[in-house]
Design a binder for these strands. Structure first.
Length: 111
DNA sequence: TGCTTGACAGAAG
DNA sequence: CCTTCTGCCAAGC
């Protein structure tokens, strides 16, 4: 069969972007959440990468607490050294391996 | 039109 | 723990 990947339509992409930004704006100070959780909550579980694209390319995302979004391992974004400093300034603890201590700071967005 | 590139995730070695 | 590979999917070239 022609397996059609369920691509997003333009309207879906707009809504996805809005949902992502909305969720990110709700991350409490001193907490972090993951790309995967955000994507799933927005209704597109397989679009974790799209969350990163959205935060990186959407003008205005800089004023949201997007530094509180890390990958599932607690690793901060490549090429964004400041992110770690910002998190530490909020009291987020890092493990010796340079990853966020997810056990202490992971925040799951609520519906 | 087709291949490559990511602010990813998860499994494997 | 770290690297590499596969699956994922929109964007870039």
């Amino acid at each position: 069969m022609h397996d059609y990947p369920d691509r997003m339509t333009a309207p879906q992409m707009r809504q996805f972007r809005d949902d992502v930004l909305n969720i990110v704006s709700q991350i409490p100070r001193g907490c972090v959440t993951t790309y995967g959780h955000i994507a799933a909550l927005a209704g597109w579980p397989s679009h974790a990468r799209m969350v990163g694209r959205t935060l990186h390319y959407t003008p205005g995302a800089e004023r949201l607490p997007c530094h509180r979004v890390v990958n599932a391992a607690g690793r901060t974004a490549p090429g964004w050294a400041a992110q770690r400093q910002m998190l530490q300034a909020e009291g987020v603890a890092f493990k010796p391996n340079g990853h966020v201590d997810m056990a202490r700071h992971l925040w799951i967005p609520d519906l």
